[in-house]
Design a protein around this nucleic acid. Structure first.
Length: 271
DNA sequence: CTGGTCACCTGGAAGC
DNA sequence: TGCTTCCAGGTGACCA
């Protein structure tokens, strides 16, 4: 799915196309994603202008100049696309938001995504309240990360994927950032030294920034709202590259299982 | 609290 | 060709 970079690329493309435009109607084709889709969205939002789109971790928050927000999460296979107003409904199309010029469609074959209405104050909603810091915010630094990791004895890679520790990281970018920082994914999180925390913080920011600039990583499902592919997968150093040579040291990249997820790493230069 | 495991759901690829 | 098994950008409920 979309991790932070893919969600941010989606946010930027939707903002460019939709901000200031009125929502004309809401069409629901599926009753349930991860949670039931609210039935009263049309009555609540029809006629309202979209004035802002924010992102928190992997969540998108649509602001229609009301106290609450429309929350969208893309799960593993969700996509938001801008389509002509007469685009026919197909399998796995769940919700259409018709603006005056585009149909914004949420498609999600696996239905792990979510579309919810959140009453104000939005930041107190359980899905958002426990999220860790935004890795691209200035307030996120090695000191803050170290304070959170200090108590964690588990392996660093699954800890990084815990949205309560840092928001927005998933399987690809946790692995990529650890490689960039030269840290073995199996290292106990609480045992990283100060210099390693600095390296990890910088690696996270650089990896995410570069991925956003490249339009995200298109693997199976993901494209931007305009249908464009993200090209960051071409720059993956370890993710999906088991058996290939490490671009930094030439050792053979390996794959292992951590917390039921695949982890890719280089045994040569990740210590 | 923390850290593993599992379920949620569908489709594509690989194996036989 | 066709059936089976495994795997996938996430997350949170459950259990030791």
């Amino acid at each position: 799915m979309p991790e932070l970079p893919e969600v941010e690329v989606t946010r930027q493309a939707l903002a460019a196309a939709l901000l200031g435009r009125p929502l004309k109607r809401v069409l629901c084709h599926a009753a349930k994603l991860r949670y039931p889709v609210p039935a009263d969205l049309h009555g609540r939002l029809a006629g309202r202008p979209l004035v802002a789109i924010a992102r928190r971790g992997k969540y998108l928050l649509f602001d229609f100049a009301l106290p609450g927000r429309l929350l969208v999460h893309l799960g593993m296979s969700g996509r938001l696309r801008l389509l002509p107003l007469d685009a026919p409904v197909r399998k796995h199309d769940h919700v259409d938001l018709d603006f005056d010029h585009w149909r914004l469609r949420l498609t999600d074959p696996r239905r792990f995504g979510a579309l919810l209405w959140l009453e104000a104050p939005v930041e107190r909603h359980p899905l958002l309240a426990g999220l860790g810091p935004e890795p691209l915010d200035d307030a996120f630094d090695a000191v803050a990360l170290g304070l959170t990791l200090r108590r964690r004895r588990g392996a660093i890679k699954p800890v990084l994927m815990d949205a309560h520790v840092v928001a927005g990281l998933g399987n690809i970018y946790a692995a990529e950032a650890l490689h960039r920082a030269g840290i073995d994914p199996r290292r106990p999180a609480g045992e990283l030294g100060d210099d390693e925390l600095v390296a990890l913080t910088e690696a996270l920011r650089a990896t995410l920034r570069e991925a956003i600039a490249a339009g995200g990583s298109s693997l199976r499902d993901y494209t931007g709202p305009d249908g464009r592919l993200g090209h960051f997968a071409l720059q993956h150093r370890v993710y999906g590259r088991a058996g290939q040579a490490c671009p930094r040291c030439g050792a053979t990249i390996e794959k292992l299982r951590q917390a039921n997820r695949s982890t890719f790493y280089c045994p040569g230069c990740q210590k």
